[in-house]
Simulated assay, not measured.
Amino acid sequence: MHRIIFLALFFLNGCATSALWQKNSDVLYITGFYFNKESNQLFVAADNTGFIFPIDAEFGEALLLTREVEFLPYFLDFKIDVRNRVQGSVRLTLKERNPTDELRAKVQSLGFATKKPNGSLSLTRMIKGERYIIEGDLPLEKLDKWYNVRVERPDSFVEVTKKVVATPLAITVDTVVVVPAILFLAIFSASN
Rank of each mutant, 00 (worst) to 15 (best):
V44L: 15
A46C: 14
A46M: 15
D47L: 13
N48C: 04
F51E: 04
I52N: 08
F53M: 10
F53L: 08
F53I: 03
I55A: 03
A57T: 07
E61F: 05
L63T: 00
E68P: 00
L72G: 07
F75W: 14
L76G: 06
L76F: 13
L76V: 14
K79M: 09
K79W: 01
I80K: 10
D81Y: 02
V82R: 14
R83I: 00
R83W: 06
V86E: 01
S89E: 09
V90N: 00
R91Q: 04
L94V: 03
L94T: 06
E96W: 00
E96I: 01
N98D: 11
P99A: 00
P99L: 01
P99H: 05
D101E: 13
E102H: 10
K106Q: 06
G111N: 06
P117H: 03
L121R: 03
S122A: 15
E130A: 07
R131G: 00
R131F: 00
Y132Q: 09
Y132P: 02
I133L: 08
E135N: 11
D137P: 06
D137M: 07
D137G: 10
L138V: 02
P139L: 09
P139V: 04
L140V: 11
L143Y: 11
L143K: 05
D144T: 08
D144W: 04
W146M: 09
W146E: 13
Y147G: 11
N148E: 15
V149N: 01
R150C: 02
R150F: 09
R150L: 04
V151H: 09
V151L: 13
R153M: 07
F157N: 07
V160Q: 10
K163M: 14
V165E: 11
T167F: 10
P168S: 07
P168M: 09
L169K: 14
T172E: 10
T172S: 12
D174N: 15
V176L: 14
V176D: 09
V179D: 11
V179I: 15
P180V: 15
A181T: 11
A181E: 01
A181K: 06
I182A: 05
I182P: 00
F184R: 04
F184V: 12
I187Y: 10
A190F: 12
A190G: 03
A190S: 09
S191V: 10
S191H: 05
